[in-house]
Amino acid sequence: MSVRRKPVSTLVLRKLPVWIFMIVLSVCALLPFYMMVVMGTHYSEDLYTGVKLFFGKYFVQNFQTVMRQNFLLYYWNSILVAVCNTVGGLMVSALAGYAFAKFDFKGKAALFAMVVATLAIPQQLGLIGFVLEMRWLKLNNTLFPLIVSGMANAFGVFWMRQYIGGSVPDEIIESGRVDGCKEFGIFFRLVLPIIRPALITIFLLFFLWSWNSYMTPLVMISKEELYTIPLSIALISSEYRTDYAARILALSMGTIPILILFSFGSKYLIKGLVAGSVKG
């Protein structure tokens, strides 16, 4: 059949691969997450008897097992750490990224190379040094190390530099200067609104990383009242055994803030720029 004569079916035909792509990937993405939620509702040992596709009858017991711990306190600790870490890290990254993207200054190349070089260092390497340092500062067994670790995030700086370089036109900055704005004023008033999608992306990722961080809390925190969610998972056990189902339930409950944040942030990621702020 001729393509030209039937425009409607061409449209369908052309979109078909796109639809298949979307459906296959979405199913692959959704299924394990769904299974994780389902796993939290089963009896722990039953998890291993095969892939569970439907909700089990053990939710209430697992929920009780989780709640026997001081889960809300750990939730609060995690939120405190993640919010402080993320807000701080976001500002630090955006400022530095902006400077690297839009200014010429002495030593810029070398300083930026240093930022990228930090990316290359395996995170676990600095662990002992960090614990030692926090002990010297008498800050071990507080939440401070968890908040501050990773706040100077090379990844964030690199991302912001790339993003600002590609999306903030120099004219806007110049026009701000012409209008007599101070440099920081330009950043806060003109640049930040433009890079909102990037800020949201980084906010989400920083929050997620801080929220899931395990290694640093593991070695820093030995007091139950300072536990974050990933640490508290080790507390969850039943009578004689490690209760994986309850642990997974707790961890699923731990993903709720991420889901909420993402649902809110999601629409800004694609909306495009506010009309008039940038000329392409």
């Binding site: 662990l127 002992i128 614990v131 030692l132 926090m134 002990r135 071990n140 067994n141 593991l218 070695v219 030995s222 080790a234």
Partner: peptide
């Protein structure tokens, strides 16, 4: 599985 690492880091940093 984490005991060795936690003991080691604590020892190395002179922690509690």
């Amino acid at each position: 599985k984490d005991m060795t690492q936690k003991l080691q880091t604590t020892l190395a940093s002179g922690g509690e």
